[in-house]
Write a protein that binds this DNA or RNA. Structure first.
Length: 464
RNA sequence: GGCGACGUAGCCAAGUGGUAAGGCAGGGGUCUGCAAAACCCCUAUGCCCCGGUUCGAAUCCGGGCGUCGCCUCCA
């Protein structure tokens, strides 16, 4: 029953033991709000949302922090292109991101710190690194002394000197060592800048996460998340800073999600093969996108192609149909002995066991589909009340963690639809099948599913 | 070039020593006026290839082939 989690640092799946009993603290790297959000932003957000919900389901009190990098080179460049203030641009895309998260049913973080609101904390953090010898000032900037950390490279699995062979172009001659990275960048004319002991400037990219994670979560916290592409250099540098600052590890478990691919190739800025979430939401509902992101284990690459999404949506609709069938069902009464009853009764423990195993949402969905089949078997076997009651309970249990159920189901009781349905029933009784079929087509065109069954005809809409 | 990950049916995808989950697509049936939905049965004697360890391997080890990623902004 213990939760097991894969740790990128030790490259092992380890039992999860929270630092403080009953509580879990999590920090994940958020986005730089300089452009529209794409699927690559959505995946970690949705994955961590499922992880949070599962930990909560298991009784933990979760504190979740996710930052916004609201000052950096990309943002400055983009703002200059558009002739708009950096903070203005950042505010716009932060709002858009938040709205997107809502559509994906992602809970807001407990804290969403922004770099520009934490400059003092960051400056103090850097100062202590300088005082401790882990960093040095040079020409108005401050650099981290990478060689001061004997374990530098361990997280991303590389050796420092090998890494620097040939490839790196030396842009900052004031560095002691080419691998050193900026904690504080001296201001260039026209850029946003803040005062510091080393002159006007702004934070480097990596320092914010060390400073802010520790500000909001304390000296050690349980899990640190982010995309695989952040392993190096971002998280490697972050780890080095935090170790230099604290004298020990800040992070218990490093958790990295796999990347999104398109036709098997990584989606990236430089390849310009990204899809924005806005584009996707024109074709698919937030629930379809969310669950598709959870249909594959979080550490595996995920291919985002329309044909795969369509296939997934078809499967999800089967779950929706069952939900509409059982949504109003009363709790199950007397139990009978049958395979499908066993399946329905033990569903939740199997589901939670899948989630306990390194948050295996793919397997959890497999269990869910099994449960759907078992429920239908029960219904077909003549135990509709029992099967529906159990299925309802199970769907709600799974939904607590995965969040796939439609917010509300539109029932087929629209006045016009009811009239058409009544007339079709009359036509069928009179064996006027041509008219009956025409009326059915009309209903289908209006977006309804028409389900004829032994207890009469039902119509409903699938949520979209 | 260095380091790392992965290779499971037509497609997507779980499974890290005990005899291949699940989804989509496809075939056959039941039900139905017909269809849809649902249910039942079928669809990988085999998990990239070749060796090895083991009573037993998709799972461990060695070699090969292939794909992808990181080393540069990226979630």
């Amino acid at each position: 029953m213990a939760i097991r989690v894969y740790d990128s640092l030790t490259r092992q799946t380890r039992p999860f033991e929270p630092r403080v009993a009953g509580r879990v603290s999590i920090y994940t790297c958020g986005v730089t709000p300089y452009d529209q959000s794409h699927v690559g932003h959505a995946r970690p957000a949705v994955v961590w949302d499922a992880i949070r919900r599962h930990l909560m389901r298991r009784g933990y009190l979760v504190t979740f922090v996710q930052n916004f990098t609201d000052i950096d080179d990309k943002l400055i460049r983009r703002a200059a292109e558009l002739g708009r203030p950096v903070e203005d641009l950042a505010r716009q895309f932060i709002l858009e991101y938040d709205r997107l998260m809502e559509q994906l049913s992602v809970m807001p973080p407990d804290f969403a710190p922004q770099v520009t609101e934490n400059i003092d904390t960051i400056v103090a953090y850097i100062q202590r690194l300088v005082d401790g010898g882990g960093a040095y000032a040079a020409e108005g900037s401050v650099y981290f002394r990478v060689k001061s950390d004997p374990e530098y490279g361990k997280l991303s699995g590389r050796k420092l000197d090998e890494m620097l062979e040939g490839v790196r172009v030396e842009l900052e001659p004031e560095k002691e060592y080419p691998g050193d990275f900026a904690l504080w960048k001296a201001a260039r004319p026209g850029e946003p800048a803040w005062p510091s002991p080393w002159g006007e400037g702004r934070p480097g990219w990596h320092i914010e996460c060390s400073a802010m994670s520790q500000r909001y979560l304390g000296d050690t916290f349980d899990m640190h998340g982010g995309g695989m592409d952040l392993l190096f250099p971002h998280h490697e540098n972050e780890r080095a800073q935090s170790r230099a600052y604290l004298g020990h590890e800040a992070v218990n478990l490093w958790v990295h999600n796999g990347l999104i691919t398109r036709g098997g190739v990584k989606m990236s800025k430089s390849l310009k093969n990204g899809i924005t979430m806005a584009q996707l939401l024109e074709r698919y509902s937030g629930h379809v996108l969310r669950t598709y992101l959870l249909s594959v284990h979080y550490r595996k690459p995920l291919d985002f192609e329309g044909q795969h999404l369509d296939a997934w949506q078809t499967g999800l609709e089967r779950i929706y149909r069952l939900w509409q069938d059982v949504e109003a069902a009363p709790a199950a009464g007397a139990i009978v002995a049958a395979d499908w009853v066993e399946s329905l009764i033990h569903f939740e423990e199997r589901f939670l066991a899948a989630m306990d195993d390194d948050f295996n949402t793919a397997k959890a969905f497999g269990e869910l589909f099994d449960m759907v089949t078992a429920a239908h078997r029960g219904i077909d076997a003549g135990y509709a009340d029992l099967a529906k009651g159990l299925a309802r309970r199970n769907l709600l249990a799974a939904d607590q963690v995965l969040r796939f159920l439609p917010d509300r189901t539109e029932s087929g009781d629209g006045a016009l639809a009811e009239v058409l349905l009544t007339r079709r029933n009359q036509a069928r009784k009179q064996k006027n099948f041509a008219l009956a079929d025409a009326l059915r087509d009309t209903l289908i065109e209006a977006g309804y599913e028409v389900l004829d069954g032994p207890e009469g005809t039902r119509i409903h809409r699938l949520p979209q």
